[in-house]
Amino acid sequence: METTQPHIIPASAATTAPVITTRQLTKRYGALEVLRGIDLDAHEGEVISILGASGSGKSTFLRCLNLLEIPTSGSLTVLDENIRFRQQGNELRIADQKQVNRLRSQVGMVFQNFCLWSHKTVLQNVMEAPIHVQGRNRQEVRDEAQKALDRVGMLNRADYYPSQLSGGQQQRVAIARALVMQPRVLLFDEPTSALDPQLVGEVLKVMQDLAAEGRTMLIVTHEMAFARDVSSRIVFLEQGTVRAQGTPQALFQGGMDERFDQFVSHFMRKT
């Protein structure tokens, strides 16, 4: 049935250095092959939206990039460092936890379920990692944390606990928590999927501002309009492979990849 070839066109003039590079990245859970060899170069300043149906492997791929999932094979380079693995049986393991921790502290991650630490206040959530992971000065971190909270509009909730906040507010705090680490890349794993529809906008607004200031971002999302309007590149995954990629203009005008067009129209119908 499926005779069409995947369409890959080169990403928009990639003149800057790659921040994250994957080569033939695979992930398997037992017999289930979730990722079947993904090559990706994410360059400085790019905003890449990773789209795909559920089960296409997009979240797994994103989680591989900061080693929350360990790839089954392939290579991964983050900020010019090749991640060192060691083989154990049929699986890879992290060979150098210090290396991973160091890179993780420069790669911000925003989760679907916010994942704020429920035993800490908003301000404590934001200050935790800069102080205890990066070893920075508390007073300096406090100032920066307050600035980060201010820019996501959450400074007036600094002393609240996560359980006292709406989902949208929690997610904005989570973004501030990632920003205060001064990350080189930001990963967003379906950041609006767990939000009530009326709260999605406030989070997308913050992300749009971040994109506008030239931050490198990889975003797994179902927000088609956001992906079309904000990203510099779309990567469309299907069954664990990159089915199509290119600029939003090229992909969304249709006719470039039949499967992508189906995916988008199906999505528009649903929402």
């Binding site: 929350l68 921790n101 993780r104 991650m109 630490w117 205890h132 928590r177």
Partner: peptide
Amino acid sequence: RNEIEAAQAMGMSGFLLRRRIIWPQ
């Protein structure tokens, strides 16, 4: 589990992760 993951994603592991996140929780 996801709060532990959030800590790991920020570069915590081992004793630091236990002392700051897991044990207080």
